[in-house]
Computed example of a mutant assay.
Amino acid sequence: MNEKAYYEDVNLKNELKLREMLKKMPAFCKQFFIGIEPRTSSRTRLAYAYDLDTFFDYLKQNNPLLKTVDVTSLPLSILNQITPQDIEEYLFYLKYYEKDGVAHANDERGIKRKLASLRTFYRYLYKNEMIENDPAIKVDMPKIHDKTIVRLDADEVALLLDVVESGENLTARQQIYHEKTKKRDLAILTLLLGTGIRVSECVGLDLDDVDFKNNGIKIHRKGGAEVIVYFGDEVRQALLGYMEERNQIEALDGSTNALFLSLKKSRINVRSVENLVKKYAKLVTSLKNITPHKLRSTYGTALYRETGDIYLVADVLGHKDVNTTKKHYAAIEDDRRRSAAKFVHLREDN
């Protein structure tokens, strides 16, 4: 029996989770998820489900007429009674609330995402004439305040890779595991820093996704597109060093084709990669909270500084909209504009 590709397995699990969630949601939600399926990823649909579940739970808890009504029995007509002001109150509620004794909080980005989910939901129902009005479109998106982009400097990148190779300053317990994983860890961090791929794309790599003849890896992007990303000699050497070890490991069923394995001989997961990045990065910098995504930003910054080509950076990182890339690298853009001042001389020096 052929092994499922990582992304196929993820899609299947997300779809099963979504179906379980739909059992607890109003019946009319099912048509929405069927309708958006052709143009959305399984991950996006699952995120919509979590956001809508929060919205319907809010309606039930905060509307006296609905307190005794089971969420699954909420009528579609209830959506026609929602006003823009009701949605604004919901967004205010999202800043901090408690559910089942657990406190939840959302920053401006979390609130914006939940409003975006609600807008998509209402837009679909209104477009398909299932409801009479669309109040969500009348609610302004929260203003997002820019955050400083955290990335590693060039000297920190070199130091990070040195630490992975040597294991210096790791605890005694960490040293024991380090001897077993250092080639794998070096390959993973070098690959993330040398290609800018997402952590999910990294853990999803199979052995036959690596092409050493052309120095490329085949990855599946968030939206489902299959692309080839190319790597340099440093990444090549790190991968070859790990492959010698990987070829000697007999992986568990279901992971026999996985490139990166855990100590349990199954495909390494996203959380494990996040933890190993955090472990090594803390030895390099205590001020920066380095995650796999920050390594992606580090790569994008280095590539843009070397090429000055924002479209190339957007393409390699898999950004569908170049404006997303520009937003992340605006500070570097400003540095480049400042440097222009020294290149044009109006008079020769005396």
Rank of each mutant, 00 (worst) to 15 (best):
D309P: 01
G223Q: 10
N11V: 07
A187P: 03
V277Q: 10
A258C: 12
N2R: 03
Q174Y: 00
V227A: 07
I87A: 05
D334G: 02
I219Y: 02
D206H: 06
T256D: 12
S200Y: 00
R173M: 11
R173S: 14
N289Y: 11
V322L: 07
A187C: 06
H293E: 14
A251T: 14
L159M: 05
L94N: 06
N289D: 15
N106K: 09
E88L: 14
H220T: 15
R151Y: 08
N275D: 08
G110P: 02
F121S: 08
H104N: 12
Y242H: 09
L189H: 03
T40I: 05
F212I: 09
I219G: 07
C202G: 04
H319G: 10
Y280S: 05
I219T: 11
Q175T: 14
R337N: 14
P38V: 11
E306P: 05
V210E: 05
T291P: 00
K13T: 01
V322G: 04
L170Q: 05
N289S: 15
K13D: 12
C29V: 07
E306D: 13
K30W: 02
L22C: 06
D57C: 05
L159Y: 02
G216W: 01
A105F: 00
K213E: 11
L312Y: 13
L263V: 04
F121L: 14
P292G: 06
V203P: 00
A136N: 03
K327D: 05
E333N: 10
G101Y: 06
